[in-house]
Simulated assay, not measured.
Amino acid sequence: MADYIKVLDSDKGYPLDMFCIPRHYEEDLESVLLPRGLIADRTERLARNIVQDMDNSGAVYALCVLKGGYKFFTDLLDCIKALNRNAETSIPMYVDFIRLKSYENDKSSGEIKVIGGDNLSNLTGKNVLIVEDIVDTGKTMQKLLNIVSKFQPASVKVASLLVKRTHRSVGYRPDYIGFEVPDEFVVGYALDYNEYFRDLSHICVINENGKKKYSTQ
């Protein structure tokens, strides 16, 4: 049994008019791939899995990959905090942030830029949980894991809301996966296209009109 929800290539999502979509994006989206409520329920289950796995590990240092990961990170930690309040045992949580950039328009630039993380020495000897929005080819996460490993954490696990099913993948798989999705460019729930669509509640597939409208070129 898979430990993630697989969205099939044949699944084209839900019609936009079945959901509340901001008017300024109505002409820029193909469909709603993952509704906000489904994301919330899946996040709650991932939080439970993480707490069960790390229950006896001591404090957890949660590292959010910005900017796209901030919404998933916030919701995941809220679920973990709720479990901490209502369980016999609880996990102390610390938080930090790092920013990586590898995309320009809908293409990977081939160069991964680390724009944050000056205080990663705090990870030394800690149990680290890296929280990411999406793993595409896996190259970005592999680079981040190499960076983190230099600070000698006690352990490192990765939780990603999405993993893209693509022939460009290097084969990397996170420890915790929310959804495996087709090779489409998705936006919303803090995932962006050139900084647009972060204010969209659902995860949607962008259309060609949206790509053209918000292109940097």
Rank of each mutant, 00 (worst) to 15 (best):
S10F: 05
G13R: 02
Y14P: 01
P22Q: 06
H24G: 05
D28T: 13
L29S: 09
L33F: 06
P35L: 08
A40H: 12
D41H: 15
D41A: 15
T43Y: 07
N49H: 13
Q52L: 13
Q52E: 14
S57G: 01
G69M: 13
L83G: 00
L83H: 05
R85K: 14
Y94F: 14
K101A: 15
E104K: 11
E104F: 09
N105K: 09
N105Y: 12
S108L: 08
S109L: 14
G116D: 12
N119F: 08
S121C: 05
E132M: 07
D133A: 09
G138E: 01
K139M: 05
K139R: 11
K139C: 08
T140M: 05
Q142A: 01
Q142T: 05
Q142W: 01
L144Y: 07
I147S: 15
F151W: 10
Q152A: 15
S155R: 06
K157E: 06
S160Q: 03
L161I: 03
V163W: 00
V170N: 14
G171T: 08
Y176V: 03
V187D: 03
D192F: 07
Y193G: 00
E195G: 02
Y196A: 12
D199L: 06
G210V: 01
K211D: 08
K213N: 10
T216A: 15
Q217N: 14
